[in-house]
Amino acid sequence: MHKVSMTVNGRPVSGEVEGRTLLVDFLRVNLRLTGTHVGCDTSQCGACTVHMDDQPVKACSVLALDAEGADIATIEGMANADGSLSTIQQAFQDYHGLQCGFCTPGMVMAAAALLRETPRPTEAEVREYLDGNICRCTGYHNIVKAIMAASGQEVVPVAAE
C-alpha cells in the first residue's frame, strides 16, 4: 500500500492505495465520489472523464499514484458556488442532453474541457471532440445542442423543431 495525496474539487485529500489502483477507483471507492462512472475496461467510453490539472483525462487510464499532487476536478465540483447548476450543466438540462444520466458526468467534463479550448465550437467540432465519450441513450443530438447552447450560440429550442 502507498499513500497518495491530491486536491479533489479544491479539497486536499489523501488515502492508501495499491500500485495498481486506478484514479477512478480512488475517487469512487476511497473518496466515495461516485459521480464519476465506469462504463468500459478499454478506455473507450469516457464515462470516467475528470480533469487533471485542467486537462480532461480518463480516470480509468490513470493510476491513482500518478495523480500524486495533482489538481483533480470531478462532476461533484462542477456546480456554482451557491449550488446552482453551472452554465454547461444547466444547458444539459435545458436541452435534454441526458436520459439515463450514466454518461452524463463524463459528457459534462468533456464539454467543459472543449469549451475551455474552443469557446465557440462548430457542430462538427463538438461531434469530433466527443469521439471518446459514448452515450447510448440520446443519439447525441441534444448533447450537441446543449454544448452549442452553453457556448452562447443560438440553437433551436427543445421540442419545437
Binding site: R28, V29, R32, L33, T34, G35, T36, H37, V38, T74, I75, E76, M78, A79, L85, Q89, F92, Q93, D94, H96, L98, C100, G101, F102, T104, P105, V108, V158, A159
Partner: peptide, 23 residues
C-alpha cells in the same frame, strides 16, 4: 408541455445513486 426533467439535477451533479454506487 415540456417541463425540464427533475431527475436531471442529481445526474448532472454526480449525486445519482446507481447500483454500483451502493456500498
Amino acid at each position: 408541455s415540456s417541463p425540464k426533467r427533475r431527475e436531471d439535477i442529481r445526474f448532472l451533479t454526480g449525486t445519482g445513486r446507481y447500483s454500483d454506487d451502493i456500498n
